[in-house]
Simulated scan of single mutants.
Amino acid sequence: MTTRRKDRSSEYGTVPDRVARLLLDEPPAGRGEFAWCLLQHRSRLRALWEAHGAAIVTIWARRHPGTRPPLWWKAAAPVPRLLADGQPPRYPKAPGLYEGQAAYLDRLGLLQRGERARIPAAAWLPEDIRR
């Protein structure tokens, strides 16, 4: 009897496995993939995000509704998050209590179809961000 390895390509769609794991902030599959991840320069990450970001957000939103992967906040967030009191931060990347990810995505109309109904209550709560 043979055992079949689970084919993860369908999980990531058209995004290559190692690219998907990198952009989804998942651990590399092995040493070779770890080395490849280390070699991805910031400009290369932006290019990978531009090529595969939409698919990555769809995968992420299915797994973690009301949130986005860490790289999305650096590469694709259209505007900075507001502080929990509704004011903009005094300077970029200021530590503080910020609006929850779900509140941000909802305010900007960035939730995917059907995502709102699956968002856990915690994703709406303000987030203490220490940068």
Rank of each mutant, 00 (worst) to 15 (best):
Y12K: 09
P126I: 00
A117E: 15
H64D: 14
T3F: 15
L82V: 08
W49Q: 03
R21K: 14
L39V: 04
P126N: 04
P27R: 10
T3W: 13
E26Y: 12
D85N: 14
W72K: 10
R42P: 04
A117D: 15
L105S: 05
R42I: 14
L48H: 02
D7T: 08
P120S: 00
R42K: 13
L83H: 07
P92Q: 00
R42G: 06
G13F: 08
Q40I: 05
A55F: 03
A77S: 00
R81H: 00
P78V: 01
K93C: 02
A122G: 12
R5H: 12
Q87V: 08
W49I: 02
M1L: 12
K74Y: 02
D7C: 03
P27M: 09
R4C: 08
A123S: 13
A76K: 02
G114F: 11
Y12E: 11
A122Y: 04
A51G: 04
R113V: 15
P65C: 10
W72Y: 12
L111E: 07
H41E: 14
L108M: 07
L82P: 01
W60T: 08
Y104N: 04
R8L: 15
W73T: 02
D85C: 11
R113K: 15
L111V: 08
A121H: 12
R81L: 03
A77I: 02
E33A: 09
Q101N: 13
Y98K: 00
E26A: 13
I59D: 10
L39G: 14
V19D: 14
L48P: 00
G13C: 06
R107H: 09
